[in-house]
Amino acid sequence: MSFAAQVIDLEKDYMLGSVPVRALRGVSIDFPHGDFVAIMGSSGSGKSTLLNLLGALDRPTRGNYLIGDRDVSRMTDDELSEIRNERIGFIFQSYNLIPQYTVLENIEVPLHYRSGYPTIGQVEQSRIMELADLVGLGDRMDHRPFQLSGGQQQRVAIARALVNDPQIILADEPTGNLDSKTEEEIMETLLRLNREGRTIIMVTHETSVAKLAKRQVYMKDGVIAGEGVFPG
């Protein structure tokens, strides 16, 4: 059986001075294609650390992490960048748009870093328009982030995460800063992406949000404490 991503005995130590902080202490978990996982757990339990490793933003101290058939845990910095660019879409709690860029330019950013640096042509332009329509911002392409509401900004971030057509979407508390109505809209969008076949891994504190995922993973003190499926 092939997985979208696979984590084997993953450990992460942070050095605080000379004292290691063991943020992850041996995490193993498989993500089949088309999975939708909500990671939950108390503050400091290692959720973000795990998500950062899954996003190839960092290398584990010990253990392995496979995306498709490639082992990410021993990759060089440049290879990690390539993996992030091609295979992963990020959605952050605080949207993380580039403030001086317009909506269009923000969605475009991952295209600038494709390997071989192909120019942005007609195909890409129409894909950007398609994505903007998908998240309902087709008429806001010239706006700058400060001219948009939080929900709109998050939708720009989703469009940006999708522009290179990644298999895995990682979201760290994507609705943490939003009201419940906007939260619903964003979750609606994520669910649709999941139905289209994308693997989504999401960190959240809210059971109402976690309930929408296919399965839930609970973390405690750097290990997986339990798994469950909502509802019931």
Partner: peptide
């Protein structure tokens, strides 16, 4: 700095 982090997350290499 934040912008640099965003770009790195989106696939920018150090050289970029």
């Amino acid at each position: 700095t934040r912008e640099i982090g965003i770009r790195r997350a989106l696939g920018a290499k150090q050289q970029d």
